[in-house]
């Protein structure tokens, strides 16, 4: 249970996930923010107006998947690091995740990484496809990685090998 472990249930996750047809069209935001807290930068940072928190800033965010262009700006502005992008448009076998990643050193493109689930357990391997660190991201870089499609709902984050 989220409030006891920090791990949301599968139902909670699926409820905020875009439909597979939308995922297959290209990058789209998934906001895993399930608790009422006073916060709304996701809403006002989105130029497409695709995220709505509303007048009561304690509401949980709602993503309009059709308006969302998958630009990734909200990933770097969400203080809870709760938003990621998923993209199933590139291949029938794999999906690409984009996650905010604030650990140094940053991974490099082509690097093989462990992919973890929401409990931090390694579930598979993936490959880093892009690392973005624009000045406007204000020290919250975005790492994209590719994993087998069967892990669409289980994969959440990456873990690098300790050297």
């Amino acid at each position: 249970m989220l409030i006891k472990t920090g791990v949301p249930t599968e139902e909670q996750v699926k409820e905020v996930f875009p439909p597979i047809e939308r995922i297959n069209k290209g990058r789209v935001a998934v906001a895993e923010c399930f608790q009422r807290i006073p916060c709304n930068p996701c809403e006002y940072s989105c130029v497409k107006k695709a995220i709505c928190v509303g007048e009561d800033i304690n509401n949980t965010p709602n993503v309009d998947f059709e308006k969302c262009s998958g630009c990734g700006v909200c990933l770097t502005k969400c203080p809870g690091l709760a938003i990621m992008l998923v993209d199933g448009s590139k291949s029938a076998e794999s999906v690409e995740f984009s996650v905010p990643y604030e650990f140094m050193p940053l991974p490099t493109v082509g690097e093989e990484i462990s992919v973890v689930n929401r409990s931090g357990e390694v579930i598979t391997r993936g490959v880093v496809s892009e690392v973005l660190n624009a000045k406007s991201f204000d020290r919250t870089p975005i790492v994209r990685f590719v994993v087998a499609r069967e892990f669409l709902y289980a994969a959440r984050y990456l873990k690098r090998e300790v050297k």
Binding site: L2, T5, Q35, G80, A82, R118, S119
Partner: peptide, 23 residues
């Protein structure tokens, strides 16, 4: 306490990075 006192988004982000949270 029997539940996490801080915001769940903070808890989730350390949990997926591998830290167990024991209430």
């Amino acid at each position: 306490a029997p539940k996490i006192g801080g915001y769940c988004v903070h808890a989730s982000k350390i949990r997926r990075a591998g830290v167990p949270i024991l209430v």
